[in-house]
Simulated assay, not measured.
Amino acid sequence: MFIIDVTLKSTPMALSVQRKTAEGAKALYQQILDALRNGNPTVLELTCEQQVEKTIGILVSEISAVQMAEKSSTATASGRPPGFFALAE
């Protein structure tokens, strides 16, 4: 399973969707990057392959970062999901 995290401007929390294959994850990652480069479409609608009822609509102008990572047992074993940063306790 692959996770695509999208971080929005002025929002500390990332929005995530999942893809079952590396090809599907890379295609979605590239779609988001293309939208960031040219501004079209202005709204991206993303769906999740693990939670099929999950749909996210994002204004492209509000995206500050995108990340693709493979979901692994080591990330869940440490208690921290993959992401852009960790908050100090």
Score class of each variant (00 low, 15 high):
4 I>E: 04
32 I>T: 05
28 L>I: 08
88 A>R: 11
71 K>L: 14
22 A>Y: 11
5 D>P: 00
61 S>P: 01
74 T>N: 09
65 A>N: 15
3 I>R: 09
42 T>M: 08
73 S>C: 05
68 M>F: 07
57 G>P: 00
73 S>W: 06
24 G>P: 07
7 T>D: 00
3 I>H: 00
10 S>Y: 05
31 Q>C: 05
88 A>Q: 14
50 Q>H: 10
80 R>K: 15
71 K>D: 15
28 L>Y: 06
89 E>V: 11
78 S>C: 10
10 S>V: 01
66 V>T: 12
54 K>H: 13
81 P>V: 12
23 E>I: 10
30 Q>Y: 00
83 G>E: 10
84 F>V: 05
3 I>Q: 07
17 V>D: 06
15 L>N: 06
54 K>A: 03
14 A>E: 09
81 P>L: 14
84 F>G: 11
1 M>N: 02
36 L>A: 01
38 N>L: 03
70 E>I: 07
43 V>Q: 12
78 S>R: 08
87 L>I: 15
27 A>W: 05
72 S>W: 00
4 I>D: 04
2 F>V: 00
23 E>P: 08
78 S>A: 13
20 K>E: 12
4 I>R: 03
34 D>L: 04
5 D>C: 07
71 K>V: 14
38 N>Y: 03
72 S>I: 07
5 D>V: 00
34 D>Q: 08
3 I>P: 00
34 D>A: 11
79 G>L: 04
46 L>M: 11
3 I>E: 12
70 E>N: 08
83 G>V: 04
81 P>C: 10
38 N>M: 03
3 I>Y: 01
17 V>T: 12
49 E>C: 06
32 I>R: 02
72 S>V: 06
1 M>I: 06
44 L>P: 02
46 L>Y: 03
47 T>E: 09
41 P>Y: 02
64 S>H: 06
44 L>W: 01
27 A>Y: 06
48 C>Q: 04
51 Q>D: 10
67 Q>E: 15
63 I>K: 15
45 E>I: 12
86 A>F: 07
69 A>V: 13
35 A>E: 04
30 Q>P: 00
82 P>R: 11
28 L>F: 09
88 A>S: 13
35 A>K: 00
19 R>Q: 11
86 A>P: 01
5 D>A: 11
33 L>S: 06
65 A>P: 02
59 L>R: 14
52 V>S: 11
88 A>Y: 05
28 L>H: 10
53 E>M: 04
53 E>I: 03
76 T>N: 09
81 P>H: 07
78 S>P: 02
2 F>P: 01
81 P>G: 12
63 I>G: 10
7 T>W: 02
84 F>M: 12
80 R>N: 11
70 E>Q: 15
22 A>P: 05
43 V>W: 07
14 A>N: 08
10 S>N: 14
5 D>Y: 02
16 S>M: 03
68 M>S: 13
16 S>W: 02
12 P>Y: 01
40 N>A: 10
22 A>C: 10
4 I>M: 04
